[in-house]
Structures are given as structure tokens and as C-alpha cells.
Write a protein that binds this DNA or RNA. Structure first.
Lengths: 255, 255
DNA sequence: CTCCTCTACTGTTATATAGGAGTTGCCGGC
DNA sequence: GCCGGCAACTCCTATATAACAGTAGAGGAG
């Protein structure tokens, strides 16, 4: 293994390249330890700060994780949740579980939801646009954090026009069997279609904490609008999830 | 503006927080310059390295961009390309442009495609699985970089089973009017459906360079499989695009 | 007026050093 | 055997310093 201090490529990047290579080629398996900063600095003959920067590069790429006092190891990837558009078809919804619960069940992970907020709030722009109402007018929100397999999986806010949920268990902690979509349909709002909009970005500090994200892991923001047969938007589902735990799949016709 | 060196929160993060705040609140508009490293270090009374790290945090969050010799400025966001699933319907395809060209046209951006590779390659696992063939068996690939508005927008590799493209212009630089889908249909493979799979992650070094990605910008990897009326996968489209320039929209029925 | 060069700014890489803080395991006292 | 404490390891923050490289503008030579 050669480091050329006179190369065009900075030393810290050369060191990062070296370990990226080992990881890509599988010679450093997930869970395997990388040399400590001090060891790196000795074996490559560079200053501590330079060794540290090399590891920093790999961290920011999400290839390794480092724990204070314990060292740096190749990142282990958990299972990926495949979110297919078919999960929201009526047949699947009829199975009795809300969307997320069913997803987790299919992976064999235990499921939990933690209610963060339940009540009326002024509609943010993004939500108001999709519900076809004035920005700032009151809407009902169910704001929660979904857990699967003991880890936080997504932050999910569901927004409803007030007139649709009055007197339903949607305003309660437990929206009842089949989730809130079932309640809306019981109330005569048969769901006709969904629109999902996805965007990937880096997480905010808060999101990082709430989702226990490792450095270098982006998030996917998914906004789903549920439309009833009358063409009315009856729910906007606004969520943020860890990109390394979710894969999205959509099937659609070619004509 | 106060920095507390004895705080629990590291100094460099406190400085980053300060500017993140200014940016979030709009007091530092997109394009506005942040103080130089030297200035920061003077006004906050910290070492140069510390000031530098603060800016590094903001860079990694994608909030600012810095140019060597010119300083650090609040990031300006370009327009977002909205990729709706309807863009691939037959009606839209019939308009005569390939998918990407039509997308760019709709935004009023000029379009260019740069061919990177054209020829047979052994099928990587990911592709073979979707084409229902053996991993490593030969497939034809069109590997290109798509440009829009003078900027690289995506890396796109299209893979085809060999028997489908022999003697068609798909093997040439220019696949002809309507793109390769039109050629496949002319040949009797009427497209029935698409499957798109999306996943967000941080880019590799190569992708960063090829897409001219700013630090802290994730990419979205989109794999589209085109299925003909006989149920055969006739193309796998494997692409990588900058997350901050693309938004994905899917509409689908609720039953 | 145009072109070049010099200079003062900007960020970039690398060094050396120091003290702090989390983790682990060993070893001795009980 | 158990427990406490210490030592040796890990990473983390911060300082100071140096040389290098890209940018932009001022000012002089032609």
C-alpha cells in the first residue's frame, strides 16, 4: 500500500481511497474494524489530523461508523424496507392494518408507533396547497414516529381537513382497525387515488436525532395525497425516512 | 452573537448554528457571502481550524458552497425537475422525444446527451435479475450523461437483451425519433408497463465528479424496467441523478 | 486603451501538540 | 468471587503554524 505525498491527490484522500477499495472489494467485511487514528498515522507516516480526515471522508460517505472510545468499523446495513405502491391498494388495506404496520409485518419486524402530537395546527404551505385550502387555516394533524425492529423508521405527519375527522377516532391516539383510511371510507369518502411525491436531501439536526441517523445518511421526504372519488384531497401524509432503510417501488402502465 | 467556549456544545458547532440560523431566517439570502475563515477566526476569537470546521459543517449540510479563492456563499438552488410517472405514457412518448428530452423541454432548458459507452458488456447482477437472464451474460448498453441547462443532470445506462436491438439504431449514437422505446415498439414489443425502483444515497467520488455535485448533496438511483405485452423485460434503465435537482411524482389508483 | 504582473485576499492541505472524554480490561484489595 | 480503581486504549476538540493554490483588483508598461 503506497501513499505518495507528492501526488496531486491529497494524502488524506489517498488513504480514504485505500480503505474504500478494501470495503468495496469485500476485504473489509461489514463490522470489521479499521485501524485506529493513531495506528493509521504511524503506518502511513502522516500526522494524526491527516489520518483523522481520511476516516472523516469515509464517515461522510456512510461507509464506516465510529464510536467514541471504541474505534471505527465498517458499517453494517440493516434490511431494506421495500415500499411498493401496491401496498396501498384496497385489497391490502382491507387486511386490517394501517400501511406502515403492514409493511413492517411483512418484514417480520415488530411495530410500534409513538404519538408526538395530536391536534389542530395552522396548515403549512406545503400541506395547504395539497388540501386546496388557505395557508394557515386550521387542520388536524397526527404527528408520530414509527418504530420497526426497535429502531425509529420514519417521522410521519398526517393532515386532515377538520370537517372530515370530527367525531371519528382519527382524533384519538388509536385510529381504529384499518387505520385512518378505513375511517375516512366509512364516512363516505371512498379513496380513488394517491399521489406520492418524493425528494431526497440531507437531514436536519432534529431529524438526525429523531431518526438516530448515522452521519452521511440522507433522508427521503415523501408526501402522499389521498384523493376521494369526488376528487377531493382528504389526507396529506408528510413523512421523512432514513434513505438507507427504504427503497421505493412503483409499477405503472405504459399507456 | 455569543460563543461560549465552556459550553457542552463544541465551539465549531455553535458557530455553525449561528449561521444556519441566519440562513434559515432568511437574513442571509441565497448568494450572500459568509465571512471568510480568517474573519471568522478574528471575530469569534477562535483558531483558524475551528472557524474552518464550522463552515465545513454548513457545507456538509448543503447550506453553503465555497469556492477556492472566492469565499463561502449561501447556496442558490436551481429549478427542480419534476419527474411524473405520466411522462412515460404512450401519449407523451408519441410526442416524438425521448423521456429525458421531453422533461427538459418542459422546463425550458436546452438538452444534450453525451454518449459515454455504447456496446456489449456482461450483465451486472442488478441488471440480470431484472432482465431475467444470467448474471454476466452479454447485454447491450447505452451509457450516457444527460445535460440540461448547461449542467449535468443524470448518468443513465440503458441495458437491452441482445436479440432485441440487433440491426436497430439503438446500437447507434442516435436511436432515432422517439428514442429507443419507439424502436422497440416498431419491432413488435409493445410496452405494457414500467416498474421504477428508487433509492437515495450519498454519491461515490466518480458520481460526484461526473454530476458536478456539491458536497452534502445526495443522489437518487432510479432503476426502471420496461415490460412488454408478453411480460418480457425489454429494457432496464439504470440512472443516478442529483437529489437536489429532481423530485419524483407518482399517481396511482387506490384500488 | 490594453495587457501584464504584483499583491492581497480567499480557501486547502499538512504538521505538531495539548487536553478532554468514553471504553475496556487488568489487577489488587476485600 | 466480587468490586473498585487504574492504565491504556479509543475518538474529540482546539490551538498554532506553515506552505501552497486559486481569484480579483490595482497599477504600471507598452
Amino acid at each position: 500500500m503506497e501513499i505518495d505525498p507528492n501526488s496531486d491527490r491529497p494524502v488524506f484522500k489517498q488513504i480514504a481511497d485505500h480503505f474504500r477499495d478494501l470495503i468495496d472489494r469485500g476485504e473489509l467485511a461489514p463490522g470489521a474494524a479499521l485501524p485506529s487514528e493513531a495506528q493509521l498515522s504511524r503506518t502511513f507516516g502522516v500526522a494524526g489530523g491527516t489520518a483523522r480526515r481520511a476516516l472523516e471522508v469515509l464517515r461522510s460517505e456512510g461507509l464506516v461508523v465510529t464510536e467514541h472510545g471504541r474505534g471505527t468499523r465498517v458499517r453494517e446495513r440493516g434490511p431494506m424496507l421495500r415500499l411498493a405502491s401496491q401496498r396501498l391498494t384496497r385489497a391490502n388495506r382491507a387486511a386490517g392494518l394501517g400501511g406502515f404496520a403492514a409493511d413492517m409485518r411483512s418484514l417480520g419486524l415488530d411495530y410500534k408507533q409513538e404519538m408526538l402530537h395530536l391536534g389542530e395546527v395552522p396548515a403549512p404551505r406545503r400541506i395547504a396547497e395539497r388540501l386546496n385550502i388557505e395557508e394557515g387555516s386550521p387542520v388536524f394533524v397526527r404527528r408520530r414516529r414509527m418504530w420497526g425492529g426497535g429502531e425509529p423508521m420514519q417521522l410521519a405527519d398526517s393532515y386532515y381537513p377538520l370537517d372530515l375527522i370530527e367525531g371519528t377516532p382519527i382524533t384519538e391516539e388509536n385510529a381504529g382497525p384499518g387505520g385512518s383510511y378505513a375511517r375516512l371510507e366509512e364516512r363516505g369518502h371512498r379513496l380513488a387515488s394517491f399521489r406520492e411525491e418524493l425528494q431526497a436531501r440531507m437531514p436536519s439536526e432534529d431529524e438526525k436525532k429523531a431518526l438516530r441517523l448515522l452521519p452521511g445518511v440522507p433522508v427521503v421526504a415523501l408526501v402522499r395525497t389521498a384523493i376521494d372519488t369526488g376528487g377531493r384531497a382528504v389526507e396529506v401524509f408528510d413523512s421523512v425516512m432514513s434513505a438507507d432503510k427504504h427503497l421505493f417501488q412503483y409499477d405503472f402502465a405504459a399507456d
